[in-house]
């Protein structure tokens, strides 16, 4: 019993210590962000390509199928109330406010977050970060901040692409396959969806972008510099990002609803 209490206490202390270190690390990254954004934008653009453009295929394919599923589910449920014309609104709300940001963030963690964490972890394991320090180059603004900013910029763009392709997927299923009236489909979206709804999606995508990118660079930078350590850091990136995204999603929805 005593050992259980002691383990619980040690784990709690370790959690608080790690969380505190993460916050200090986040402040360091944020402190250097303006200078990198203004002075070394080329590095950021390269990372937007690495994290954003290279994630486009997975985002577009998943978006298309998620939209298609929304079309099928929406039709079968709304048809019970003879409201199948509202399927466009149903899908638009679902995609823009919830599914777009959340699924994109989860896919981002799996595709780009793991790539970031393992790249930085391997740079550490192969002494590249130490070599930079020895060349009097601070690795935080040179390596970490561009990758963080790349992720933050890429996420809202990916969410926008996901939502658009998703809506197109719903259109394909509902209009082309299930013969819902195309005019009603798009007109109801135009009338019902407000800028407020889109803002909710934008806010979520920015928050998820900051969280997912920060967790990925943190895990990579703090990875144990061995093959096993980098592997663990990569796994933790996906797990922690998934939890953080869903918790933030609940909090933002609760505030904005």
């Amino acid at each position: 019993m005593t050992s259980v209490v002691r383990d619980l206490f040690n784990t709690s202390v370790e959690f608080v210590r790690t969380f505190g270190a993460f916050q200090l690390f986040s402040l360091r990254v944020l402190r250097h962000s303006p200078e990198v954004l203004l002075g070394r934008f080329g590095l950021v653009v390269k990372q937007v390509f690495n994290t954003g453009a290279l994630s486009l295929v997975i985002i577009m394919v998943c978006g298309l199928f998620v939209g298609g599923v929304l079309g099928l589910q929406g039709y079968s449920n709304l048809a019970r109330f003879n409201a199948e014309d509202s399927i466009g609104v149903f899908a638009a709300f679902g995609l823009i406010k919830e599914l777009g940001p959340v699924i994109t963030a989860l896919l981002f963690a799996g595709r780009a977050g793991t790539a970031l964490a393992s790249e930085i972890g391997l740079m550490k394991a192969t002494d590249q970060l130490s070599a930079m320090e020895m060349m009097a180059v601070n690795p935080v603004p040179r390596v970490l901040v561009p990758r963080f900013l790349g992720g933050v910029i890429a996420m809202p763009l990916l969410v926008a692409v996901f939502s658009m392709i998703g809506l197109f997927g719903t259109h394909l299923v509902a209009v082309e396959l299930l013969s819902v009236d195309v005019g009603a489909f798009w007109q109801q979206i135009q009338i019902t969806v407000d800028m407020e709804d889109i803002n909710e999606g934008i806010i979520k995508s920015i928050v998820f972008g900051v969280a997912a990118s920060m967790i990925a660079v943190w895990e990579g930078y703090n990875a144990v510099p061995t093959a096993e350590g980098v592997g663990r850091a990569t796994t933790r990136t996906v797990v922690i990002t998934a939890i953080a995204v869903l918790v933030f999603d609940f909090m933002i929805t609760a505030v904005m609803i």
């Binding site: 740079m123 192969t126 002494d127 590249q128 130490s130 070599a131 320090e133 020895m134 060349m135 009097a136």
Partner: peptide, 17 residues
């Protein structure tokens, strides 16, 4: 600034990949 007067050759080279 002191480190700018140092050059260090790491065991594995540590080239930026």
């Amino acid at each position: 600034r002191l480190r700018q007067r140092f050059g260090m050759l790491f065991q594995n080279g540590a080239l930026l990949t």
